[in-house]
Design a protein around this nucleic acid. Structure first.
Length: 861
DNA sequence: CTCTCCCT
């Protein structure tokens, strides 16, 4: 190693003792030839601190810096401190770090440890990374959305600008094949770790719970986990770490373990993210008493707990999933992955051999998903979409990904960016979008900051953006709910800033969260634009929030003070008894989408007056027509914010065109039978439709039901002017209306070709009944009236009518279209019967020449 | 019955 690096020999000795040491020569040789390399080594191998130091004197580095990416701030700071201490230097010399709000870097710095978001910003500012010779992705198996994005950008950039850039991916457990392909068959180097064996014991619950997709059962999980903890506590010595999906389960199990804790003099320590910093520290710190630490997945990767020899894994995790349909995220409870379970078990083997109790069957283990789903498949992609737009990418598939950002959430993200004015119709960033990209915030909150600054509300906007992007500074009461009211958070922040500790405590405020929010807010203040003067602008919190969350304006429902309707169309509710409940309007930026109804966690009041005065652009106003109970049209003017109706005012004057449209829509819905059809109109329709069948080329109009419904505007609408009620339809003369659709010539021709009536030999006129489908029209006539006629009468010059021949009492005798055939073959047969039944009538032997009659025969003289 | 991180 080069003499230019101070104290390298001492560092070299230390690194030589790490489990990762044997692969270092191989790694150096490989990196000299291949710019992209994958290193796989288990936790505890020393790769995070050992490898970057070994690369310092590589010739290809040519004086440039090494970037080491860490997924968490704490890990970044610790890695930098550890490497600096190996060099006997303070951090900030050869080794430095950069995380949000904190930077220890100097001109001498050669290794820069950064958190993942920082790399994205560096790339956006200098896409060639001119000062950087190597980028190392640590803990890449966690597949955070930031790491995936940063890798996609790095690969894109290195291909076009920097083929010499070394990209080193370090991973503990990962499906390496896809990564291998993504990196053009990059060489893979595997190293050993140093951890102790962990024995696995499977404690399967009842068989019915083994189905891969069974519904999650809170009480069942609490029951079996409690039992397993007691068993493990009695069977093993040392401290226990228990993995549960969430705070609810942790509290329930803690309650059930109370007796054990007293009898055995052991400590029950909950551990989850919302816990105050001091309580988290207390859970992590080993002591003289035996401990049972009840943790969420926070202990899987983020926190290491000393002294644990036994792990109990309930087998579930809770994780967020973005729903592009409602633009919100919901928490789901899902089975732990095989990789996650391995990680959890590994927590028992840090100091010596350990044991892990798994609450599922060994055979069932194979049905668990192999890995946690990458965050990019489940997260809100708004920020990622903004970065891609800034990178100049219109379609994510232009870049190379392990998992392409899913289309639904991506489209939702672009829509939101468009609504915020950050991208134009082409998907290019607007100047406003450019500014949003430079702010370390979700685009919604960046928008809030910029608008707030413009309105002279920079202070409030910074506090709001910081509050909404950091952990809630109000802690949940031990067994109670916490109010969703954002004002409480502002009160806690004010109490913190003014050093009023007692007030902060009485609000159940968390000191470390307040400190963090205050820092972030101050930083945002520097980034925000200079406030313009708006002397009269005094904004409520809610009013400011609406700029970032116009879709989360919510209106109290009449049935319950806790239930609200969101402008986006979904329902959401406050906790029972929340002081905000009952307010007519709130804005709710933090919501869990839930299943049927969402849950509101943070909200602020807004008044109708504020909505009208300051957010009139959200209010749409239009007339809407309704059918009243008498099926008459009434008009109301409606003001809305999305799904929320602000007001309805009855209107006396109806817009004729809207009335007509409403009427036509109603007729389409009900069908043509709602119109006053009579026999004449139906027969006319049938005649014209028959003509259309018989003379397809003659241009007869189409009066079939489906076509008429489709063309209501053309043939019916002119007769519907000023009609208000369905009952008024009865006054329509449908025959006249249909006839008007034919020319004078067509009408005459139709009358000639398809007569309405026909005169039979007896001299009587009988109606012809037509059908729609071109079958022969029906002529119902007494048999005797047809005497003297040889052939079937025709319509349309060639279509024989269908004769329904009747007895003198109008009973059916025969149906035929062939009168001649009837006279020849059937008449002689029926004649005998008719004579018997109707003896007073005349039944001639030769009906073709006999005179027709409708009367009974004369008495014999 | 609220997961966890992260942002010049």
């Amino acid at each position: 190693m080069a003499a230019s690096t101070p104290n390298m020999s001492k560092a070299q000795q230390q690194i030589g003792r790490l489990p990762i040491a044997p692969i270092i020569p191989d790694l150096l040789a490989t990196l000299a030839l291949h710019p992209r390399v994958i290193v796989s080594a288990p936790p505890g191998s020393g790769k995070t601190t050992g490898l970057p130091l070994c690369l310092l004197d590589a010739p290809w580095l040519a004086g440039r810096r090494i970037l080491l990416l860490e997924p968490r701030r704490l890990a970044a700071r610790m890695a930098a401190n550890w490497m600096a201490s190996l060099l006997d230097e303070p951090v900030g010399q050869t080794v430095g770090y950069r995380i949000r709000l904190e930077k220890k870097i100097s001109s001498a710095t050669r290794i820069e440890v950064v958190t993942e978001g920082i790399l994205t910003r560096m790339l956006q500012d200098d896409p060639s990374l001119a000062q950087i010779g190597a980028v190392i992705f640590d803990e890449f198996h966690e597949r955070s959305i930031h790491a995936d994005l940063a890798l996609a950008l790095c690969l894109d950039m290195s291909e076009s600008l920097r083929e010499d850039l070394r990209i080193l991916i370090m991973s503990a457990t990962l499906e390496l094949d896809p990564l291998h392909r993504l990196l053009d068959e990059a060489p893979l180097i595997c190293g050993q770790g140093e951890s102790y064996p962990v024995a696995l014991r499977y404690l399967p619950p009842a068989l019915t719970r083994q189905q891969p997709n069974h519904l999650y059962d809170f009480q069942h999980t609490v029951r079996i986990t409690t039992a397993a903890v007691i068993q493990a506590f009695n069977e093993q010595g040392g401290d226990l770490l228990v993995f549960l999906p969430g705070i609810g389960e942790i509290k329930a199990v803690a309650d059930r373990l109370g007796v054990l804790a007293q009898e055995q003099n052991c400590l029950i320590r909950p551990l989850y993210g919302d816990l105050s910093g001091s309580l988290q520290d207390e859970a992590i710190r080993p002591g003289r008493q035996r401990r049972i630490v009840l943790a969420t997945s926070i202990a899987e990767t983020s926190l290491t707990i000393e002294g644990i020899t036994t792990v109990v894994d309930a087998g579930y995790r809770r994780s967020p999933r973005f729903d592009p349909n409602c633009g919100m995220t919901r928490l789901i409870t899902e089975r732990v992955s095989q990789a996650g379970a391995k990680q959890r078990a590994g927590r028992a083997g840090r100091l010596g051999p350990g044991i892990c109790y798994r609450l599922w069957a060994e055979a069932f283990h194979q049905t668990l998903p192999p890995h946690n789903r990458p965050e990019i498949l489940e997260a809100d992609l708004c920020r990622l979409a903004l970065e891609l737009c800034q990178w100049g990418v219109k379609d994510p598939s232009e870049l190379a990904w392990l998992d392409l950002p899913p289309a639904g959430p991506y489209a939702q993200a672009i829509t939101l960016l468009h609504d915020l004015g950050a991208v134009d119709g082409n998907g290019s960033l607007t100047p406003h979008g450019q500014k949003l990209a430079t702010l370390p915030l979700h685009p919604r909150l960046g928008h809030l900051l910029l608008i707030g600054a413009e309105l002279g509300q920079l202070d409030a906007a910074c506090d709001l953006a910081a509050l909404l992007s950091e952990r809630d500074p109000i802690l949940p009461a031990p067994h109670g709910e916490r109010s969703a009211d954002l004002e409480l958070r502002f009160m806690a922040l004010a109490a913190f800033r003014q050093g009023r500790q007692g007030e902060l405590r009485s609000l159940n405020g968390d000191l470390s969260s307040c400190r963090r929010i205050d820092q972030v807010s101050k930083r945002l203040h520097q980034l925000g634009n200079q406030p313009k003067k708006h002397p009269n602008a005094s904004f409520g919190l809610g009013s400011l929030l609406v700029y970032a969350y116009p879709d989360r304006v919510a209106n109290c429902r009449p049935d319950s003070p806790e239930r609200y309707l969101l402008a986006g169309g979904r329902g959401a509710r406050l906790a029972i008894g929340d002081p905000l409940a009952g307010l007519a309007f709130i804005v709710a930026p933090i919501i869990d989408a839930g299943h049927r109804e969402g849950r509101i966690f943070l909200a602020a009041e807004i008044t109708l007056k504020e909505l009208r005065d300051l957010h009139h652009q959200l209010i749409s106003s239009h007339s809407k027509l309704y059918w009243d109970e008498r099926d008459c049209l009434v008009s109301r003017k409606e003001e809305r914010i999305g799904a929320i109706v602000l007001s309805t005012t009855p209107q006396a004057v109806l817009e004729p065109n809207l009335m007509l449209q409403a009427l036509l829509t109603r007729i389409r819905k009900e069908g043509l039978s709602i119109l006053p059809w009579d026999r004449k109109a139906r027969n006319f329709q049938a005649r014209i439709n028959s003509l259309r069948c018989w003379q397809p080329e003659a241009g007869w109009p189409d009066l079939f039901e489906a076509t008429l419904l489709e063309n209501l505007e053309d043939w019916l609408a002119p007769y519907l002017n000023n009609l208000l009620c369905l009952s008024q339809l009865a006054s329509l003369n449908l025959l006249a209306i249909l006839e008007a659709g034919l020319s004078w010539e067509q009408r005459n021709l139709a009358a000639q070709l398809t007569p309405v009536q026909i005169t039979v030999p007896s001299g009587t006129r009988h109606p012809l009944e037509y059908t729609d489908d071109g079958r022969s029209p029906i002529l119902s006539v007494r048999l005797q009236e047809m005497f003297g006629l040889e052939d079937t009468p025709l319509v349309c010059n060639r279509i024989p009518v269908l004769l329904h021949l009747l007895s003198p009492a109008s009973r059916p005798v025969q149906v035929t279209s062939d009168l001649r055939g009837f006279w020849d073959t059937t008449y002689p047969l029926v004649k005998k019967e008719l004579q018997g039944r109707y003896p007073r009538h005349h039944w001639p032997g030769d009906p073709r020449t006999a005179p027709p009659t409708a009367r009974i025969k004369k008495k014999k003289n």
